[in-house]
């Protein structure tokens, strides 16, 4: 239970969680701002006129049936997919549409994929080392040395994600849930301002889910977190504000109770909710 305790006072225990002097300017409102975004694949509109605002420090859950455009939305934010129309701003200073993936990542947007992707040939420790916020240009990377400070930081994250005993094991041998945590750990090493988490609890046991919920709710406040999830039980347990996507645009937004009573949402979505929550 040391984890729980430490999470309660995390900003004092974990210095890496203390707010960074970030280049992101959030004085004038939200940290992420998507306006009228449309993406077309071969005539099919995966995202249709999407408007979404995420406030600084907010924990937002995004739900929606398959094909609603959740993953595509994340692809747009992280620079993997370019929208056909619209604009995406990070803070009020950075136009994300003009940047590539590493630039966006170094601005402080971290992403966890739906399918956990860790570097399987590298050890857990090395996975975290690579993810750590540092000078990621070539020569500094070549000459980088392991210092005590870095080691401590990695150790702390190892504790947070509960993988201390597996630190020297190659990530390839981790279980599915452990890989999910390692990936979250890698996000933490990046000290992101905005975390995009795609289906964090897919394939997890009840217990693992609980721990993940703690982890995510603990992060919110200092960092903005966007969680895309299918599992309604899990969403209910962490959500403060929920956005429902349908056919590439926002169908409803509000607290979990608000959206689950929205007649539109009930019509297109909540039929499936019962099944999934069961």
């Amino acid at each position: 239970m040391s984890l729980l305790q430490s999470l309660k006072a995390r900003d004092r225990v974990f210095d890496f969680m203390a707010p960074d002097a970030s280049p992101v300017d959030v004085r004038h409102g939200p940290i992420l701002y998507m306006e009228d975004v449309t993406v077309t694949f071969d005539g099919f509109k995966a995202i249709n006129n999407l408007n979404l605002t995420i406030d600084d420090g907010e924990l937002r859950c995004i739900i929606g049936p398959n094909g609603a455009g959740k993953t595509t939305m994340m692809d747009i934010i992280t620079g993997k997919t370019r929208p056909t129309e619209g604009s995406v701003w990070f803070g009020s200073r950075h136009n994300l549409l003009n940047m590539n993936e590493p630039e966006i990542a170094s601005l402080g947007i971290g992403r966890k994929f739906q399918k956990p992707t860790v570097f399987e040939a590298l050890s857990v420790f090395e996975n975290l080392e690579l993810a750590m916020a540092a000078d990621k240009r070539i020569l500094p990377t070549l000459t980088a040395r392991m210092t005590g400070e870095i080691k401590d930081r990695i150790d702390e994250v190892l504790q947070t994600i509960g993988l201390v005993s597996l630190r020297y094991q190659p990530a390839g041998i981790l279980s599915h849930g452990q890989k999910q945590w390692l990936e979250i750990g890698m996000l933490l090493m990046q000290r992101p301002r905005l975390l995009l988490v795609d289906e964090p609890v897919a394939g997890m046991t009840e217990q693992e889910m609980e721990r993940t919920a703690e982890l995510l709710t603990g992060l919110a406040g200092k960092q903005s977190v966007v969680v895309v999830e299918h599992d309604m039980g899990f969403v209910r347990s962490i959500a403060r504000k929920v956005t429902v996507l349908h056919q590439g645009s926002v169908l409803a937004e509000g607290s979990m109770d608000q959206v689950s009573n929205d007649p539109n949402v009930v019509e297109v979505y909540l039929g499936a909710d019962d099944e999934e929550a069961a």
Partner: peptide
């Protein structure tokens, strides 16, 4: 070196390496 580990990371999961902030093409 750490650069070597970035290479291995690139080899096994190029997209992931980009998302954690390395300019893969330069490496």
């Amino acid at each position: 070196s750490k650069l070597g580990r970035v290479c291995v990371a690139t080899r096994d999961a190029e997209a992931r390496t980009r998302f954690i902030g390395y300019r893969v093409e330069r490496f």
